[in-house]
């Protein structure tokens, strides 16, 4: 079967974005600092990728306060889950087709 790389979602091209989606796929919600620790990236880098994914509506943001400090939690939306799973399937197919 012919699989085209065009089917790979452009939104997941960056490793950081793929990492964010993977972490959120395995957890209900994660706050900014947890994501930062898992991904080992700078604040600015992470924030811009989160913004990007938010724009695509793949992740949702939940803002609250803990001890009067703002606490932002991120979670995967249904759309995000769909896109992420499709991305995984395409990756698998690409690997198989190139063997």
């Amino acid at each position: 079967m012919k699989v085209s790389i065009d089917q790979l979602n452009k939104a997941f091209e960056s490793r950081v974005r793929l990492g964010i989606m993977s972490a959120l796929a395995a957890n209900h919600k994660l706050d900014f600092n947890s994501l930062k620790q898992y991904l080992n990236v700078t604040d600015g880098n992470l924030a811009s990728h989160l913004k990007g994914l938010e724009k695509e509506r793949f992740i949702g943001v939940e803002k609250s306060f803990i001890d009067r400090k703002p606490n932002t939690k991120y979670f995967m939306t249904k759309e995000g889950k769909k896109a992420f799973e499709a991305h995984l399937r395409t990756l698998e197919k690409l690997i198989k087709s190139q063997k």
Partner: peptide, 17 residues
């Protein structure tokens, strides 16, 4: 690269949970 992508996804899902 694709294999690496998949491996990284897997490792991140495991590592974060």
């Amino acid at each position: 690269d694709y294999i690496k992508d998949l491996a990284e996804i897997r490792s991140m899902m495991e590592r974060s949970s």
